[in-house]
Nucleic acid binder design. Structure first.
Length: 271
DNA sequence: ATGTCCACCTGCTGGC
DNA sequence: TGCCAGCAGGTGGACA
C-alpha cells in the first residue's frame, strides 16, 4: 500500500496521461470498493476535461472542469495501470481519454475508495478537514509535534500513524523515520524528548523526500502506474528486516506488534 | 477524548 | 506436492 510517496508517484504518472485531456469514457466494473462508487460518477466525468492532478495525504485528486474533483484512495493494494491492454478481475474503474489512452484502477483487496467532491469545498470535505500537516509542507514543525503529542500515552509509533497528527505517514515510513531519528517506537508519544522531536522532523522530511525521489517503494503488489518499479524499498533500514544486521549498530533488527501492526526497529540505536 | 481491538478483502509465503 | 495459518502498504467503527 501506497503511502504518501507512492501516491505522489502515482499522481505524477497519471498527470502525464490525463492533464488537459478529455475523459471520453469512464466505467465502473463493480458497484463498490470500500464504499459504493458515487452514483453520479459516470455522468459527471464523461466528457469532462481534466484541469489538474493533485494529492492530499494519501489521497489522489483528479480535478475536472465541472467544479468537481475525483478523489481516490489506494487502500492497501490499489494502483493505477496505464494502458493495461487486457483488463483483469481487479480492474474496478476504467477511464479512457479522448486521445485513446486507458487507465485502470486495480485494487485486489478493495480497501481503496473513489469519491466525487466539489472542488471549491475540498478542504472542508470530512476526510480532509481533520488531517494534520503534510510532511513536506510548512506545517510540520517541532512546535506542532510538541503540541500534538503532549499528554499522549500511546506509543509514538502508533500516534504517528494517526493522520490527524501528520498526514500521509504509514507503517513503512514511520518505522524508517523513527530509526533515523533514533527514537524507540515503544516510547509514549508525550514522553518523547525535545531533542528527539528536533531530530524527528527532519528525519520524516528526508525519508519522504528521498522516497518520492526514488519513485516510491515496491512491495508485494505496488508498482508505479507506468509499470516501472520504485527503488526506495532497496533502501529500508528497518522495515521488513527482522533479524538482519542494523546498518549502524550491526545488531539485529527486532520486530514487535503494536496496535496489531508490525513495527521494526533497532533496539541498540533507538532509545 | 484517548486507547484498543477488529472488520473490511484477496493473495502470497512459509511451515508442516 | 498440498494445505492452512499468518501476514501484508489503511481506515474507520465499536467499544472500554
Amino acid at each position: 500500500m501506497p503511502e504518501l510517496p507512492e501516491v505522489e508517484t502515482t499522481v505524477r504518472g497519471l498527470a502525464s496521461v490525463l492533464e488537459g485531456e478529455q475523459i471520453a469514457r469512464i466505467e465502473t466494473r463493480r458497484a463498490d470498493l470500500r464504499r459504493p462508487f458515487p452514483p453520479d460518477l459516470v455522468q459527471v466525468m464523461t466528457g469532462a476535461t481534466v484541469t489538474g492532478l493533485g494529492r492530499r495525504a494519501k489521497y489522489g485528486l483528479i480535478h475536472v472542469d465541472r467544479g468537481q474533483t475525483l478523489v481516490f484512495h489506494l487502500g492497501m493494494s490499489g494502483r493505477w495501470r496505464i494502458d493495461p491492454g487486457e483488463l483483469g478481475a481487479h480492474d474496478h474503474l476504467v477511464i479512457e481519454t479522448g486521445s485513446g489512452r486507458c487507465l485502470a484502477l486495480c485494487d485486489p483487496r478493495r480497501f481503496g475508495s473513489v469519491d466525487l467532491v466539489e472542488s471549491e469545498v475540498l478542504a472542508a470535505w470530512p476526510a480532509f478537514a481533520a488531517l494534520g500537516p503534510e510532511p513536506l509542507g510548512d506545517g510540520l514543525t517541532v512546535a506542532h509535534l510538541r503540541t500534538a503529542l503532549a499528554g499522549r500515552g500511546a506509543s509514538i509509533k502508533q500516534v504517528l500513524l494517526d493522520q490527524r497528527i501528520i498526514a500521509g505517514l504509514g507503517n513503512i515510513y514511520v518505522c524508517e523515520a523513527l530509526f533515523r531519528a533514533g527514537i524507540d517506537p515503544r516510547k509514549a508519544a508525550g514522553a518523547v524528548s525535545a531533542p528527539a522531536l528536533k531530530r524527528l522532523v527532519p528525519a520524516i522530511r528526508e525519508i519522504i523526500a528521498e522516497a518520492i525521489e526514488a519513485g516510491g517503494s515496491t512491495l508485494r503488489d505496488y508498482a508505479r502506474p507506468d509499470g516501472e518499479l520504485g527503488y526506495f524499498s532497496k533502501r529500508f533500514d528497518v522495515y521488513d528486516r527482522e533479524g538482519q544486521a542494523c546498518s549502524r549498530s550491526h545488531g539485529p533488527i527486532a520486530r514487535i506488534v503494536q496496535g496489531g501492526r508490525s513495527t521494526w526497529f533497532c533496539p541498540a540505536c533507538q532509545r
